[in-house]
Design a protein around this nucleic acid. Structure first.
Lengths: 121, 121
DNA sequence: CAAACCCTGACACAAGCGTGGTAAGGTTTG
DNA sequence: CAAACCTTACCACGCTTGTGTCAGGGTTTG
């Protein structure tokens, strides 16, 4: 059996066993399992756990935020949609003079983003 | 007074006035104010509100997720730290053979990321 | 000036997150 | 085989999010 069991991993990382299970089901740190479904933490998982702790403390973010960042990375259509929304400015860019023009401009951008996203959502 | 007031904006966008205030304080859609601090929604804000609604529905994400995405964009050190953590793999890359090597590799990467982040957090 | 609007601040409440505990049952090991 | 571990599945609890409503007070407008 190679790799630390959940209690050993808890001791060396500072997380509680309960939280290690939570992080597993949250998809942030999911160690491989033994034949009897025991979680086996290798050096990779231990490192990830320690740096996760640092990340959360120093950046004042939540576990769910990291989960969302992971989603952003693994779902390109999601990323495209979110970035597209953030790019939408309240004020019209140069060269787009009146309101009608501007609305058309925004709607077209939106359509381009939806097309890029591939409408699977 | 140019721009819709909060109740008018609520009617045309489908959000409740309460939620428009919430979105304002959350930093997602913050319209300019009149001299008496009335929120004034222009076409830009209205568009942003409608597309936000679409974004949340279609992508099954939360308001706070969009807020976090905004933080990710406006705080490069945060973005660097999160992306760095997500890049940390459980398995060592090619050419890094034993565990000691691998741990050193990861730690150096981590330090590089922290340096890049500029340790203001 | 009075009605109809806007503001902020507060109370309320459901649902979810992060975390601890515990129970019932399988596995490993001395 | 018994002790010490592991598993999942629950109950619980405080805090945050998202949302409604209401009160007290300023503003705009007919």
């Amino acid at each position: 059996m190679d790799g630390l069991t959940i209690n050993q991993a808890a001791e060396t990382t500072g997380w509680s066993p309960r939280m290690l299970r939570y992080l597993d089901t949250s998809g942030l740190v999911s160690p491989p399992r033994s034949s009897a479904s025991y979680r086996l933490y290798g050096p990779g998982e231990l490192q990830r756990l320690r740096t996760l702790r640092e990340l959360l403390e120093k950046q004042e973010i939540e576990i769910s935020d990291v989960g969302f960042a992971q989603r952003l990375r693994s779902e390109p259509h999601l990323r495209g949609a979110v970035e597209g929304w953030l790019d939408e400015l309240a004020e019209p860019p140069e060269g787009v003079s009146d309101q009608a023009d501007w609305l058309r401009f925004e709607q077209q951008k939106h359509e381009r983003l939806l097309a890029l996203a591939g409408d699977r959502g």
